[in-house]
Computed example of a mutant assay.
Amino acid sequence: MPRYARSEREALADLMLELGPDAPTVNEGWTTRDLAAHLVLRERRPDAAGGILLPPLRGHAERVRLRIAARPWPRLMDQVRRPPAWSPVSNPVTDELANTMEFFIHHEDVRRASPGWLPRDLPAGLQAVLWRRCAGLARLALRRFPADVLVQAPGYGALSVGRGGEPVRVVGSPGELTLFLSGRQRVARVQVDGPPALAGQLRGADLGM
């Protein structure tokens, strides 16, 4: 059985090691060092990881992340590459479920911050896994969007989310839709059709978690 979480993790670690700690990422204001610290916090500091999603805990999470980011770069990259077996999100039982989308997205965060990037030709199996994750991601990201949004991945499926009104259609491969729905619209290669105002609003919406 393919281990996409592991392969995306290894590819991301290799790329960050090649580019160094000060390379840009798609995440505004974050370098590769910032991203690496985020990943280490998420896997190794459950006391602070809740701050990734919960505003009341964000201050503590950010203080922990900054302390992690100050570690020597080789040590930080080793911790990204080799998560602890006890981690709630990266143990052998949870790794594929919790980390395939996470590491795919962050791999692309680094890849697409460099000039001249091109989309990868992803394995069909990875595309299928990402599409299965897209349903939950779309419902979360578009729960407040003031229109019906039809999300289509040709060859994989379609789903409709939103709050009603004039429809907007987003078409792309599962990988590109994953990036779009996680708030990376400016680097996601998708087609957005619908009323111009709504299409523009969707392209500029804050869809990240």
Rank of each mutant, 00 (worst) to 15 (best):
E18C: 03
F103M: 00
R186V: 00
Q79M: 15
G194R: 00
R139Y: 12
R45G: 03
H60Q: 15
H60K: 15
R184E: 09
W131N: 06
V149H: 01
I52S: 11
A147T: 14
D121P: 07
S173D: 13
T178A: 13
V190S: 07
A5D: 07
P115F: 07
A153G: 14
G175Y: 09
L181K: 00
G50D: 06
A147N: 08
R42Y: 02
G155Y: 15
D148W: 09
D193L: 13
W131D: 05
V64D: 05
V110G: 13
N99G: 03
W117E: 01
R139L: 09
T100G: 11
V171L: 08
R186L: 01
P167T: 14
W30D: 04
T32I: 09
L130S: 05
A197I: 14
A13M: 00
L140G: 14
R112K: 15
G204I: 02
A199R: 10
Q127D: 15
A135P: 08
A5H: 01
G183E: 11
R6D: 12
D95R: 05
R81P: 07
L76H: 11
A37M: 02
L142G: 13
M16S: 03
Q201A: 15
L39F: 02
R65T: 03
N27V: 02
Q185C: 02
P74E: 12
A158D: 11
L202D: 02
A98F: 09
H106L: 10
T32D: 06
P2L: 10
P88L: 11
V151M: 05
F180G: 00
A158N: 04
P123M: 09
V187W: 04
P83W: 00
L181C: 03
T31L: 07
L19K: 05
A69Q: 03
R111F: 06
R120H: 14
P46R: 15
F145W: 07
R144K: 14
E62R: 15
E10F: 02
P195Y: 02
R81A: 07
L130A: 00
S182Q: 11
R42V: 01
R67Y: 01
L15Y: 02
S90G: 06
G157L: 04
R71L: 13
P196R: 14
V192I: 15
P2R: 13
R3I: 03
E18M: 03
F145S: 15
S7Y: 04
P123S: 10
V40D: 00
W73V: 05
H106T: 03
Q201L: 15
P72R: 08
A61M: 15
